[in-house]
Design a binder for these strands. Structure first.
Length: 607
RNA sequence: GGUCCAGUAGCUCAGUUGGAUAGAGCAACAGCCUUCUAAGCUGUCGGUCCCAGGUUCGAGUCCUGGCUGGAUCACCA
């Protein structure tokens, strides 16, 4: 999705070297040019001997020889020229290279203690702006926001680790007709209730009034329909909606009392959101408020009128004609001059561009808004903003529940706070059932449960490709075994435990190693996986996909557990082998910590 | 109806720009704790990669057409 403007020089990998040599070998052997793209390098499948594999089928046209012979010739060429290549074998059109032990050992020795292994912090000058969360001030955060927040935060961290400068921004949807609804409900039926008087989180209190409004509004509509109105008429004529509209206009005119109420209720909500964000572990570099940007949006609408790209209808409403693009007409300003969603987003996009002149603007927003972002891009381009080309909509699928969908207006949602509570509670129960660590203080235990519960939740949400609609089944999703966050956390704790024991026994394993003999299969597998980490981070950044990091981390943890099972360390008599395995464990531990860090998952030293 | 997205084991999901015999976890069943953490490891069972064509040395992956599911096409945000 994102392309790298500056090729990454810091991460020079053996794959690149192999590629270059293959291109050269084809040139020298067959006198033909091949592009970088046609050279495919992949990891050798476990059932064959080798570390890297090159597919030679694409070169047969040039060599005018059979696959085996071509592979043999290229293999000889590379084995001759690269000291890192130990040997090679050919199976059909597949050329498998075995890298030398000294290559793997050098990789191991050079990187195992590097705390920033796999990450590249050579920041570009221009930032990438990532918007996520974008809450609505009258709805408490729910399951959908959880996916959004985790995705946005993690994508930002991954981009940073890949060498980009990132600005994390939130856009608070703090104005509009929906806000008037909860304000009106509070005025009418609130009886002066406050978060303090009710001992409630502010966002929950305001959310309740929003639900209350909707309920009463529906009652009014039913009455009107019974008195002979059509449904559409009733929806427009109900006194509650008329009052809400009047309130919105008062707000836009800056009416003192209305503004004051609005500020007070918003403050309640922000206090509530802060608690949720903090617990979730996400943060922002900058917060935009729509109440500050919608006026800029209106200016852009005026600009569009002057440029003749928008037009006005008889009632005074302003529209943009998108029929050339195969779309409809889009409303930008109501007849009463109040702004709509698109107006605000035009303004925020402009403001954000002016603030940072970013190379890319990423919007983490659900896929139900694909149309909105298509339109946003088109309109910005019509206004002559060339940078609109760099707007990316990172859309993600909805989170569905086993029994139908969530409906926030009816209050049928999986609330983010409740969900976190539940996960942490399960972590507590599970740990207690396993009978672990009676020596933990209550504070230490609480911290561990929090880590595990949230780790399970985060991993569950992030391991799935963002594009997919995912199913959240509370019963099955809250598992702590298998492909889960706690499994990875457990692996880390296990590694730390061994290293702790080694230290207690005074075993030092910090030297560079010269390993006698060959690496064992599991050891080699681990080295290969660790070797992949840098590439995984880069790919995850390009694809804006935390799922790639999550799945990589699982593979690594799984491979380590297999290694752990069959390879003693502290009891290994050969000191050199023992120390190598301890060093390898440390390397894996560091990498797990680094990778989970990109996902916002903390790993404990004991569990 | 138009547009966009998805469809892989009973369930939840992996599957880097097309590459070798499509992989995990859960569930089910059978094993492994006096030995560095059993939240682990090993094994068994489980597949028409939605269907049909096409492209080519090669298709889960690309193209076309269907089928199924979801989203969207608001003076809600």
């Amino acid at each position: 999705m994102l392309t790298f403007d500056t090729p990454n020089q810091v991460v020079v990998m053996i794959e690149h070297l192999l590629k270059e040599k293959v291109i050269q070998s084809v040139k020298d052997l067959y006198g033909a040019e091949v592009s970088v793209k046609t050279v495919q390098i992949q990891k050798t499948r476990p059932e064959f001997e080798g570390d890297f594999t090159i597919v030679v089928y694409p070169f047969l046209r040039l060599s005018k020889k059979g696959p085996e012979q071509t592979a043999e010739e290229i293999g000889n060429y590379l084995a001759d020229q690269l000291k890192e290549v130990e040997s090679f074998n050919v199976i059909k059109g597949f050329l498998n290279f075995v890298m030398s032990n000294s290559y793997w050992l050098a990789f191991f020795n050079d990187n195992r203690d590097d705390g920033s292994f796999g990450k590249v912090y050579a920041a570009e000058k221009e930032a990438v702006v990532v918007e996520y969360s974008a809450p609505n001030t009258n709805k408490p955060l729910h399951l959908g926001h959880v996916r959004n927040n985790l995705l946005g935060w993690s994508v930002s961290e991954i981009l940073k680790a890949s060498g980009r400068k990132v600005v994390k921004v939130n856009l608070v949807n703090d104005r509009g007709i929906h806000i008037s609804k909860s304000m009106l409900a509070w005025q009418k039926w609130g009886g002066g209730k406050t978060p303090e008087s009710e001992s409630m989180k502010g966002d929950k209190l305001v959310g309740d009034f929003y639900v209350m409004f909707d309920k009463e509004y529906k009652c009014q509509m039913v009455e009107l329909v019974e008195s002979g109105m059509t449904k559409e008429e009733a929806a427009k004529k109900a006194t509650l909606i008329l009052e809400a509209q009047e309130m919105l206009q008062k707000w836009e005119q800056g009416d003192h009392a209305t503004r004051k109420l609005w500020e007070q209720m918003n403050d309640w909500v922000y206090d509530g959101f802060d608690v949720t964000y903090k617990r979730m572990g996400i943060d922002f570099d900058k917060i935009y408020y729509e109440s500050n940007t919608y006026l800029l949006g209106k200016k852009l609408v005026d600009e569009g009128m002057e440029k003749g790209v928008f037009f006005k209808k008889d009632d005074g409403s302003v529209w943009c004609d998108l029929s050339e693009e195969g779309l409809d007409e889009k409303l930008l300003l109501r007849a009463d001059r109040t702004s709509v969603y698109m107006t605000q987003d035009l303004g925020t996009a402009q403001l954000r561009y002016d603030d940072y002149h970013p190379s890319d603007l990423i919007y983490v927003v659900g896929n139900e808004q694909n149309y909105h972002f298509d339109v946003l891009k088109i309109i910005m381009k019509k206004l002559g903003r060339e940078w609109a080309e760099h707007i990316h909509h990172l859309n993600y699928g909805m989170v569905e529940l086993p029994h139908g969908k969530m409906k926030s207006r009816e209050g049928k949602v999986v609330d983010a706070d409740d969900l976190m509570d539940e996960m942490v509670e399960i972590a507590r129960k599970t740990t207690e059932e396993l009978g672990k660590f009676d020596d933990f203080t209550p504070e230490e235990s609480a911290k561990l449960y929090e880590m595990l519960g949230l780790g399970a939740l985060k991993y569950f949400m992030l391991k799935v490709d963002p594009m997919r609609t995912m199913l959240f089944n509370p019963k099955e999703s809250l598992d702590f075994n298998g492909n889960t966050g706690p499994f990875i956390q457990y692996t880390h704790a296990r590694i730390k435990s061994v290293l702790r024991k080694a230290e207690e026994r005074g075993v030092s394993y910090s030297d560079r190693f010269e390993l006698p003999g060959a690496l064992e299969e599991k050891e080699k597998n681990l080295l290969k996986l660790l070797h992949d980490y840098r590439q995984t981070v880069q790919m995850a950044a390009e694809n804006l996909s935390p799922a790639m990091v999550a799945n990589y981390t699982y593979e690594l943890a799984k491979e380590y557990n297999q290694f752990y099972h069959g390879h003693p360390m502290l009891k290994e008599p050969d000191e050199n082998v023992r120390n190598f395995r301890l060093g390898l464990s440390g390397f894996v531990g560091n990498t797990i910590k680094s990778a989970t860090g990109l996902l916002g998952i903390e790993v404990p030293d004991r569990m």
